[in-house]
Design a protein around this nucleic acid. Structure first.
Lengths: 115, 115
DNA sequence: CCGCATCCGAGTTGATACTG
DNA sequence: CAGTATCAACTCGGATGCGG
């Protein structure tokens, strides 16, 4: 599938950069986190769970995740429209990564409430 | 001179966002990765290891990491100047997070040679 | 010389309104 | 409901300059 690669020629100097090229977007990890926890979510559900992200950004990040084969986008041709997002198999391999991040975040929040 | 100071007061909707508020910067995870692996690095050493980051961005990301108490900045008042960066104790708690990311990146790179 | 602050152009993100 | 369009605001990259 030779698709248009905007970031073609990108070579990674370390494995961290390779991962960030896939999930380094501003809201990608958060999107993945919610999809991991809830399995399948509609567009509007994600928007409610990530209120800081505007509709444009959310759409953009979702499309990029879809292009990278991390999530699935299923559109139901009904009225009113219905679009569901879910993890692909490759997306589920990120569970441990997101889980580590989530775990550290919990510890961080537990020890930084007396600011 | 507008400085970012409201990061600590940010309300997080999920633990992932809390973590990203600390290491979500464009090169922060990469910086931490190198510091985890090499222990202590000079400014110019980091620049060589992360060539995509400009000097300005590298300085900015390092200052933010320092403000968040994740890294230590030690300046030697000598000629020529010498600045060393190393992880703080809090910074070392991110080892497993960075390690997960690094691990996934290795797997990703190994299995993505399609064209 | 090394570390890093500053100015400006370019790309990215945000807020609001609009369409199918 | 899901997504697009437009413009304003912010961020990033590159070049330059400066202090030690």
């Amino acid at each position: 599938m030779a698709k248009k690669m905007d970031k073609a020629k990108k070579q990674f100097h370390c494995p961290v950069e390779a991962t960030l090229s896939q999930i380094g977007g501003k809201y990608k990890m958060t999107i993945l986190y919610h999809l991991i926890h809830d399995g399948t979510l509609r567009y509007h559900e994600l928007q409610k769970k990530i209120p800081q992200a505007t509709a444009k950004m959310l759409t953009q990040q979702l499309r990029e995740l879809e292009s990278d084969g991390l999530i699935n986008r299923k559109v139901y041709p009904v009225v009113p429209p219905k679009t569901e997002y879910s993890l692909t198999e490759r997306g589920t391999t990120l569970t441990e990564v997101i889980d580590s991040i989530c775990n550290w975040g919990c510890t961080y929040m537990a020890g930084t409430f007396e600011e």
